[in-house]
Design a protein around this nucleic acid. Structure first.
Lengths: 340, 340
DNA sequence: TTGTAAGCGTTATCAG
DNA sequence: CTGATAACGCTTACAA
């Protein structure tokens, strides 16, 4: 039923090792036989048996994408889920399958990374998760498998030891704030999220501070108000901090969904945006174009990020340019729409 | 470095086959040695080598989840992505890894199902996709691997041949409409999506018709208006069909996100909901609680669905109760909130 | 109840 | 350039 290299060998009248070499493009096979064998393989609908291949020391054809499930589909996880679509997209093009999982078993807390390593199920790790243990990074390193860290720096591992592709969250916060200042805002509120595990929001807030300083605007602690990354919390911001909002002329929301909720509430109250108050979001989620007015936001180059990460991990798997780490921090940029 | 059953055998002072049997819970091994071996395996941090295991005819430990990527994160794919979280959740508890992929290669259109089959990379298929070819279903059947169809019936395969777990979309449309009628609505608009590939919306519309008929309300073609499953299309419904909306006292949106957009527009126009107009959505997405007023909607039992499907595929993989198909259609139910 | 040995499909080493 | 052959780690008759 299943066709193996031996079946092909029989048809081609050669040994199975010749078939293996031919299909793996070994230089020691003559072009003629190579072509013949490849033809036969194609017509017989041959695919390498994944188990056998991995057993005899070659690739599994699988990449683990390790992420952190957050159950709010509308918060930061929205960005991650979009990023994931891009990742799978590139990997599929390279004929890699994706094993998607969380870092730790939901019940036992056992490390999925260490399990996959011992099972030898994958050829590399793409990590979109900042809370992987030092121990796990070390296990991966000992195994010799490649890791690429994505989106955010790890907390329990020195990032210099890794290949990584991040977006510059500090710069994101800075350009967002600077943009509002250049639009004439003087009293700017920033709204990070209450997801305190994520370094990214701290960085955006630092960028916010930096922009204020650059423009000689004194920083005020009370103008940093963290709320959950949900529509509803954005919506009810007027209820939770009315005095602050009354004295503000610009808001930098650190996720789009918060801004979305806020915009709805603002319109109900007749607040004119951007005339009375300018608003900028973060992520450039598809939802931005849906708001009314359409949301000005900070775009994170998720597609580029995914592409770089996939190219890199494939290179590492194939031992190309693997003597040194590649570490890139991409700049976000502002997408000007109607709220600013 | 990697620990194998031979290493364990050496420590335990038995043969590697005894170790294999013990760890696989073979009845022919004495409880004493079994315990001893399991202990050693645990302390040595042993895991079966996935490649070797699959080669020698046993399980890969992988399940393919085949879905259809839709790039609008806020439409029907939202429901699917939530369903996927539930699926992975259950499978992870059973120590299965998930290979998530689309049915067909984005560039070549080659079947991923047929590839996985030939590569022998997975133990079973969970299909959340209605456009898989007949040919692929046949390949799976020939391979002897289990398939469970989820959420929606396949278009190119007779569903009676499969194990499946669906929600009853017809009934969903019917109860939604019937509920509006019992709230006093007489002229009810329904808004399916323009995703014409998906049978589910046709079924919901049929359910809508049935409810009208049950209540002796004449069906009118013009009261079925398909729009994209986006916030914005919902929002602009007033612009696209003003006359129709003026003469309607209830709306059954077939996805929540459409209703969400509509509600925003309605409030801007001072339309009182539910007093002037009652609205019901579909899916019970997290966003429902975020709308103002909160959206009454049809809840699809996604968690239950995921659980049933995972249990079933595990049973099938282990050849339990596999003589006949299990086919279940779950009923959705209404979650009453504030728009009705 | 346990051990021995063959075999799964592939790659790699060594001859020729 | 090609063919035998061993090896990868595991399961499973078959023997004991």
């Amino acid at each position: 039923m299943k066709v193996t290299i031996k079946d092909i060998a029989a048809v081609a009248g050669v040994s199975h090792s010749t078939v293996s070499r031919a299909l793996n493009d070994s230089p020691q096979i003559s072009p003629a036989t190579k072509d013949k064998i490849k033809d036969i393989a194609r017509t017989m609908n041959f695919e390498f048996n994944a188990g056998a291949r991995s057993l005899s020391g070659r690739k599994t054809g699988n990449i683990a994408v390790v992420y952190q499930a957050k159950y709010d589909q509308f918060g930061s996880s929205l960005y991650v889920s979009q990023l994931f679509i891009e990742l799978r997209h590139f990997l599929e093009r390279m004929d890699m399958d994706v094993i998607l999982l969380e870092g730790y078993h939901p019940d036992t807390g056992a490390s999925n990374i260490s399990r996959l390593l011992r099972q030898q199920k994958v050829d590399g790790f793409l990590i979109v998760h900042n809370l992987i243990t030092k121990r796990d990074y070390e296990s991966i390193r000992r195994s010799g498998l490649p890791v690429v860290q994505l989106h955010m720096p790890p907390i329990y591992c020195n990032k210099e030891e890794l290949d990584y592709f991040f977006t510059d969250h500090f710069m994101g916060g800075r350009i967002a704030t600077d943009y509002l200042i250049r639009q004439g805002c003087k009293k700017i509120l920033t709204v990070p999220t209450t997801d305190f595990d994520s370094e990214e929001f701290k960085l955006r807030t630092q960028g916010y501070k930096q922009a204020l300083e650059d423009n000689n605007i004194p920083f005020k602690e009370e103008l940093v108000v963290a709320i959950d990354s949900t529509y509803l919390k954005g919506y009810y911001l007027f209820n939770s901090i009315p005095e602050i909002l009354a004295n503000v002329d610009g808001i930098f929301f650190q996720t789009d969904i918060q801004a979305f909720g806020f915009l709805t509430a603002a319109r109900e109250r007749g607040i004119r945006i951007p005339e009375d108050l300018k608003v900028i979001g973060y992520d450039d989620a598809p939802i931005c174009e849906s708001t009314n007015p359409q949301l000005t936001t900070v775009h994170q180059p998720r597609k580029k990020l995914a592409e770089l990460a996939c190219d890199r991990i494939i290179d590492l798997i194939n031992k190309r340019n693997n003597e040194s780490r590649i570490q890139e921090v991409l700049f976000p940029h502002i997408v000007v729409r109607e709220t600013s």
